[in-house]
Amino acid sequence: MNEIATYIHLGFRHIVDVEAMDHILFLVALAAIYRLRDVRSALGVVTAFTIGHSITLALAVTGVVRLPSALIEFLIPITIVATGIENLIASARQKEARGGWYRAVLAGVFGLVHGAGFANYLSALFVTRIALPLFGFNVGIELGQVLVLAAAAALLTAIDRVIGWSRLHSGSWPALRVRIVAVSLVVVAVASQWAVERRPW
Protein backbone atom coordinates (compact mmCIF):
# COMPACT_ATOMS: atom_id res chain seq x y z
CA MET A 1 0.00 0.00 0.00
CA ASN A 2 1.10 3.58 -0.28
CA GLU A 3 2.32 5.51 2.73
CA ILE A 4 -0.81 7.62 3.33
CA ALA A 5 -2.94 4.48 3.46
CA THR A 6 -0.60 3.11 6.11
CA TYR A 7 -1.12 6.10 8.39
CA ILE A 8 -4.89 6.12 7.83
CA HIS A 9 -4.89 2.46 8.82
CA LEU A 10 -2.81 3.27 11.91
CA GLY A 11 -5.17 6.04 13.07
CA PHE A 12 -8.26 3.95 12.42
CA ARG A 13 -6.83 0.99 14.29
CA HIS A 14 -5.85 3.21 17.17
CA ILE A 15 -9.42 4.36 17.76
CA VAL A 16 -11.37 1.17 17.24
CA ASP A 17 -9.00 -0.91 19.37
CA VAL A 18 -10.50 -1.98 22.68
CA GLU A 19 -7.39 -0.55 24.32
CA ALA A 20 -8.61 2.88 23.22
CA MET A 21 -11.35 2.70 25.80
CA ASP A 22 -10.70 6.23 27.06
CA HIS A 23 -11.38 7.71 23.64
CA ILE A 24 -14.34 5.38 23.03
CA LEU A 25 -15.84 6.21 26.42
CA PHE A 26 -15.59 9.94 25.70
CA LEU A 27 -17.48 9.47 22.43
CA VAL A 28 -20.12 7.41 24.24
CA ALA A 29 -20.45 10.17 26.86
CA LEU A 30 -20.91 12.74 24.09
CA ALA A 31 -23.47 10.57 22.31
CA ALA A 32 -25.38 9.54 25.45
CA ILE A 33 -27.92 12.36 25.33
CA TYR A 34 -28.90 11.97 21.69
CA ARG A 35 -31.61 9.95 20.02
CA LEU A 36 -31.39 8.75 16.44
CA ARG A 37 -33.45 11.70 15.27
CA ASP A 38 -30.90 14.07 16.85
CA VAL A 39 -28.18 12.90 14.51
CA ARG A 40 -27.45 16.41 13.21
CA SER A 41 -26.86 17.78 16.71
CA ALA A 42 -24.66 14.80 17.53
CA LEU A 43 -22.59 15.23 14.40
CA GLY A 44 -22.12 18.94 15.17
CA VAL A 45 -20.72 18.15 18.60
CA VAL A 46 -18.47 15.38 17.32
CA THR A 47 -17.20 17.68 14.58
CA ALA A 48 -16.28 20.25 17.23
CA PHE A 49 -14.39 17.54 19.10
CA THR A 50 -12.60 16.57 15.88
CA ILE A 51 -11.60 20.17 15.19
CA GLY A 52 -10.31 20.51 18.74
CA HIS A 53 -8.10 17.44 18.71
CA SER A 54 -6.85 18.14 15.20
CA ILE A 55 -5.69 21.61 16.26
CA THR A 56 -3.74 20.36 19.25
CA LEU A 57 -2.32 17.42 17.39
CA ALA A 58 -0.99 19.69 14.66
CA LEU A 59 0.37 22.29 17.11
CA ALA A 60 2.07 19.77 19.33
CA VAL A 61 3.47 17.58 16.59
CA THR A 62 4.93 20.52 14.73
CA GLY A 63 6.57 21.72 17.93
CA VAL A 64 4.55 24.92 18.37
CA VAL A 65 3.51 23.81 21.85
CA ARG A 66 5.04 21.30 24.23
CA LEU A 67 2.66 19.34 26.40
CA PRO A 68 3.61 17.24 29.43
CA SER A 69 2.42 13.66 28.86
CA ALA A 70 1.58 12.88 32.49
CA LEU A 71 -0.70 15.89 32.80
CA ILE A 72 -2.43 15.20 29.50
CA GLU A 73 -3.04 11.55 30.36
CA PHE A 74 -4.60 12.68 33.64
CA LEU A 75 -6.76 15.32 31.96
CA ILE A 76 -8.22 12.91 29.40
CA PRO A 77 -10.33 10.97 31.95
CA ILE A 78 -11.18 14.28 33.62
CA THR A 79 -12.78 15.43 30.35
CA ILE A 80 -14.79 12.20 30.29
CA VAL A 81 -15.96 12.72 33.88
CA ALA A 82 -16.88 16.33 33.11
CA THR A 83 -18.89 15.31 30.05
CA GLY A 84 -20.74 12.68 32.09
CA ILE A 85 -21.50 15.19 34.84
CA GLU A 86 -22.68 17.70 32.28
CA ASN A 87 -25.06 15.04 30.94
CA LEU A 88 -26.40 14.46 34.45
CA ILE A 89 -26.81 18.14 35.29
CA ALA A 90 -28.60 18.90 32.04
CA SER A 91 -30.81 15.88 32.57
CA ALA A 92 -31.56 16.77 36.20
CA ARG A 93 -32.54 20.28 35.18
CA GLN A 94 -34.97 18.75 32.68
CA LYS A 95 -33.55 21.02 30.02
CA GLU A 96 -33.67 20.35 26.37
CA ALA A 97 -30.49 18.37 26.52
CA ARG A 98 -29.75 18.09 22.84
CA GLY A 99 -29.51 21.74 21.96
CA GLY A 100 -27.19 24.49 22.97
CA TRP A 101 -23.94 25.76 21.49
CA TYR A 102 -22.13 25.29 24.80
CA ARG A 103 -21.98 21.55 24.26
CA ALA A 104 -20.12 21.98 20.99
CA VAL A 105 -17.70 24.37 22.72
CA LEU A 106 -17.24 21.85 25.52
CA ALA A 107 -16.51 19.10 23.01
CA GLY A 108 -14.08 21.34 21.13
CA VAL A 109 -12.16 22.28 24.27
CA PHE A 110 -12.01 18.69 25.43
CA GLY A 111 -10.90 17.71 21.94
CA LEU A 112 -7.84 19.91 22.46
CA VAL A 113 -6.87 17.70 25.41
CA HIS A 114 -7.46 14.42 23.59
CA GLY A 115 -5.40 15.54 20.59
CA ALA A 116 -2.48 16.22 22.85
CA GLY A 117 -2.63 12.59 23.93
CA PHE A 118 -1.59 11.43 20.43
CA ALA A 119 0.85 14.22 19.78
CA ASN A 120 3.84 13.14 21.83
CA TYR A 121 3.73 9.70 20.30
CA LEU A 122 3.59 10.88 16.70
CA SER A 123 6.25 13.54 17.09
CA ALA A 124 8.63 11.07 18.72
CA LEU A 125 8.18 8.42 16.07
CA PHE A 126 8.13 10.46 12.89
CA VAL A 127 10.46 13.29 13.91
CA THR A 128 10.91 15.47 10.82
CA ARG A 129 8.73 13.89 8.12
CA ILE A 130 5.56 14.58 10.06
CA ALA A 131 3.04 16.16 7.66
CA LEU A 132 1.93 13.01 5.85
CA PRO A 133 1.74 10.78 8.97
CA LEU A 134 -0.14 13.54 10.81
CA PHE A 135 -2.70 13.96 8.04
CA GLY A 136 -3.18 10.23 7.50
CA PHE A 137 -3.39 9.46 11.20
CA ASN A 138 -6.05 12.15 11.66
CA VAL A 139 -8.11 10.88 8.73
CA GLY A 140 -7.91 7.37 10.19
CA ILE A 141 -9.05 8.64 13.58
CA GLU A 142 -12.06 10.36 12.04
CA LEU A 143 -13.05 7.24 10.13
CA GLY A 144 -12.66 5.23 13.34
CA GLN A 145 -14.82 7.72 15.21
CA VAL A 146 -17.62 7.27 12.70
CA LEU A 147 -17.53 3.53 13.36
CA VAL A 148 -17.43 4.01 17.14
CA LEU A 149 -20.36 6.43 16.99
CA ALA A 150 -22.38 4.00 14.87
CA ALA A 151 -21.71 1.30 17.44
CA ALA A 152 -22.60 3.72 20.25
CA ALA A 153 -25.90 4.57 18.52
CA ALA A 154 -26.72 0.87 18.28
CA LEU A 155 -25.81 0.35 21.95
CA LEU A 156 -27.89 3.32 23.10
CA THR A 157 -30.85 2.12 21.06
CA ALA A 158 -30.52 -1.30 22.67
CA ILE A 159 -30.42 0.33 26.11
CA ASP A 160 -33.58 2.27 25.25
CA ARG A 161 -35.31 -0.99 24.36
CA VAL A 162 -34.25 -2.59 27.65
CA ILE A 163 -35.52 0.44 29.57
CA GLY A 164 -38.81 0.32 27.69
CA TRP A 165 -39.17 -3.41 28.12
CA SER A 166 -38.34 -3.37 31.86
CA ARG A 167 -40.56 -0.32 32.49
CA LEU A 168 -37.86 1.50 34.40
CA HIS A 169 -39.24 4.81 33.20
CA SER A 170 -42.19 6.77 34.50
CA GLY A 171 -43.80 10.17 34.10
CA SER A 172 -41.13 11.90 36.16
CA TRP A 173 -38.33 9.68 34.78
CA PRO A 174 -38.88 9.43 31.03
CA ALA A 175 -36.99 6.70 29.18
CA LEU A 176 -34.43 9.09 27.67
CA ARG A 177 -33.59 10.50 31.08
CA VAL A 178 -33.15 7.02 32.56
CA ARG A 179 -30.78 6.18 29.72
CA ILE A 180 -28.78 9.41 30.08
CA VAL A 181 -28.42 8.94 33.83
CA ALA A 182 -27.51 5.25 33.55
CA VAL A 183 -24.91 5.72 30.80
CA SER A 184 -23.46 8.87 32.34
CA LEU A 185 -23.09 7.29 35.77
CA VAL A 186 -21.23 4.37 34.24
CA VAL A 187 -19.01 6.75 32.29
CA VAL A 188 -18.30 8.92 35.34
CA ALA A 189 -17.58 5.91 37.54
CA VAL A 190 -15.12 4.33 35.12
CA ALA A 191 -13.35 7.54 34.10
CA SER A 192 -13.04 8.67 37.74
CA GLN A 193 -11.16 5.50 38.50
CA TRP A 194 -8.80 6.14 35.57
CA ALA A 195 -8.26 9.72 36.70
CA VAL A 196 -7.29 8.57 40.18
CA GLU A 197 -4.92 5.96 38.77
CA ARG A 198 -3.32 8.40 36.33
CA ARG A 199 -2.94 11.29 38.74
CA PRO A 200 0.47 12.85 38.24
CA TRP A 201 1.16 13.43 41.93
Binding site: D17, M21, H23, E197, R198
Partner: peptide
Protein backbone atom coordinates in the same frame (compact mmCIF):
# COMPACT_ATOMS: atom_id res chain seq x y z
CA UNK B 1 -14.68 -2.19 31.54
CA UNK B 2 -11.10 -3.05 30.55
CA UNK B 3 -8.57 -1.21 32.63
CA UNK B 4 -7.20 1.83 30.87
CA UNK B 5 -5.41 3.26 33.83
CA UNK B 6 -2.32 3.50 31.73
CA UNK B 7 -2.66 5.93 28.88
CA UNK B 8 -3.83 4.27 25.72
CA UNK B 9 -0.53 3.30 24.12
CA UNK B 10 0.19 2.93 20.46
Amino acid sequence: VPGAADAHPL
